[in-house]
Computed example of a mutant assay.
Amino acid sequence: MTERTATIASRVGLHARPAAIFAAAVSELDLDVTIGRDGEPASDAMDAASILSLMSLGASHGDVVVLRAEGDGAGEALDGLVRILETNHDE
């Protein structure tokens, strides 16, 4: 299992536009990616391709989340997803 952490950069957190951008990027991958709050059990992680899951996560600006995936290319894919989360999409 490959894991990365990311700090939410958008001022509105992981809601609306940032969630849609992120979910679309995850959906393009041939990997199952989960997202959860840093410090919470991996078993509580949610489907990162689901906008509803992302919104229910309630991640705010500055919160740290954990992305997990398994399979070929998981590290590179998660690195790209981290870049999306650490970009302010509000501007």
Rank of each mutant, 00 (worst) to 15 (best):
I21T: 08
S56L: 12
S50P: 01
L67T: 09
D47A: 05
G75R: 13
A19K: 10
T87W: 14
D38S: 01
E3V: 15
I84H: 11
A59I: 05
T7C: 08
S56W: 15
G75F: 13
H15M: 13
V12K: 15
E86P: 04
M46S: 04
D30E: 12
R68T: 08
G75V: 15
P18Y: 02
I21M: 08
R68V: 04
T5H: 11
H89R: 11
H61P: 09
E40F: 05
R17M: 10
L54V: 06
H89T: 06
A23I: 05
A6P: 01
L85D: 09
E86D: 06
M46H: 04
A6W: 00
D90C: 15
L57H: 01
L78I: 03
H61E: 09
R17F: 12
P18I: 04
L54M: 06
A59P: 06
V64M: 03
G58P: 00
V66I: 04
L85T: 08
D30L: 05
G58S: 00
A77G: 09
R37K: 09
G36C: 02
P41I: 07
L67F: 05
G13E: 05
E70K: 10
A48N: 00
A16T: 12
A25S: 09
V33A: 01
P41L: 07
N88D: 11
